[in-house]
């Protein structure tokens, strides 16, 4: 017994070390943290209180890393917001187009604007629908807002649309309220012009312009724009109207193609007439 006691005293450091290591491993392996839960919660609560007292001290490194993380998050959220806004706008557009399609009796084909070409004041859109979808030259292109243009060329899967703000555009049109007829042209700005309207005609700003049945290219009664200005040319007998198109061409993404070509019989008759005139009077 004495020798055992001496042994323990002599090697007390090693024996204690082994015991403490065993105890530590026991706590790690079998230690029931739940039993310490209340005490631990008390300690952590106390430390939390102390921590909150020190929370006013800025930590530059933590702030830097937090700022960096916040910036990244900000960029991500901004992208999300842009995407969501875009989706909302697109959704609204598609909803209104859907409503328009339901209410319109014309055979319509939905198409997407996949390209915009502008050469010397000649503006064209490329759509993702072509001959395979039944698209032909001369078909009108519209949106729920109004007239966009006319198909001038097709391939199997695409077509080219000459939009109304094009220097080659000549649109027989009519003032909705008074049924007065005229020809719309593009003056190179964001507006259309209607010239040669006699001063005796009842015309005022705010009147709507529709496509006319006199046109052999455009389907009648398609909204085109609104008169925003009526001016007189000095001593002239005519007025000049400034028309704002209903369609916003800069943000156009989806359109309808009216699957209806101009009446071939009428076209043939009018073309023969033109040929006869040219033959008789010569090309001017």
């Amino acid at each position: 017994m004495q020798r055992l006691f001496e042994f323990i005293v002599r090697f007390k450091e090693y024996i204690t070390l082994v015991l403490l290591i065993i105890m530590s491993f026991s706590f790690m392996t079998f230690g029931n943290v739940a039993k310490l839960g209340g005490f631990r919660a008390l300690v952590i609560g106390t430390i939390g209180t102390v921590q909150s007292a020190f929370s006013w001290i800025p930590n530059p490194i933590a702030l830097q890393s937090e700022n960096s993380a916040m910036r990244d998050l900000n960029v991500q959220l901004s992208n999300e917001v842009v995407k969501m806004r875009r989706s909302v706008i697109e959704n609204d557009k598609l909803r209104s187009m859907l409503d328009y399609k339901k209410s319109e009796y014309l055979p319509l084909l939905t198409a997407e604007v996949i390209g915009k070409t502008s050469t010397e004041a000649r503006n064209y859109f490329t759509l993702n629908k072509g001959e395979a979808d039944g698209v032909q030259d001369g078909m009108n292109v519209i949106t729920d807002a109004g007239l966009v243009g006319i198909v001038i060329s097709t391939s199997k899967h695409f077509c080219l649309v000459q939009i109304i703000i094009n220097r080659d555009s000549r649109i027989s049109s009519r003032i909705e309220r008074t049924r007065s007829e005229g020809v719309l042209t593009w003056d190179g700005t964001e507006y259309l012009q209607m010239r040669n309207i006699p001063k005796s005609y009842d015309v005022q700003a705010g009147d709507n312009i529709l496509s006319s049945e006199l046109s052999n290219k455009y389907v009648k009664d398609i909204p085109i724009g609104t008169i925003i200005e009526v001016t007189s040319d000095g001593n002239s007998l005519f007025r000049k109207l400034k028309v704002k198109p209903h369609v916003n061409f800069s943000s156009l993404e989806h359109v309808f193609i009216i699957l209806q070509t101009p009446n071939p019989e009428r076209m043939k008759l009018e073309q023969e007439l033109m040929k006869r005139i040219e033959k008789k009077f010569g090309r001017q």
């Binding site: 403490l20 530590s24 491993f25 790690m28 943290v33 300690v43 952590i44 430390i47």
Partner: peptide
Amino acid sequence: IASTDDIGLNALAMTV
């Protein structure tokens, strides 16, 4: 106990 470490982990390392 004060930190969120496993009970006994720091004790072991600190003892050795």
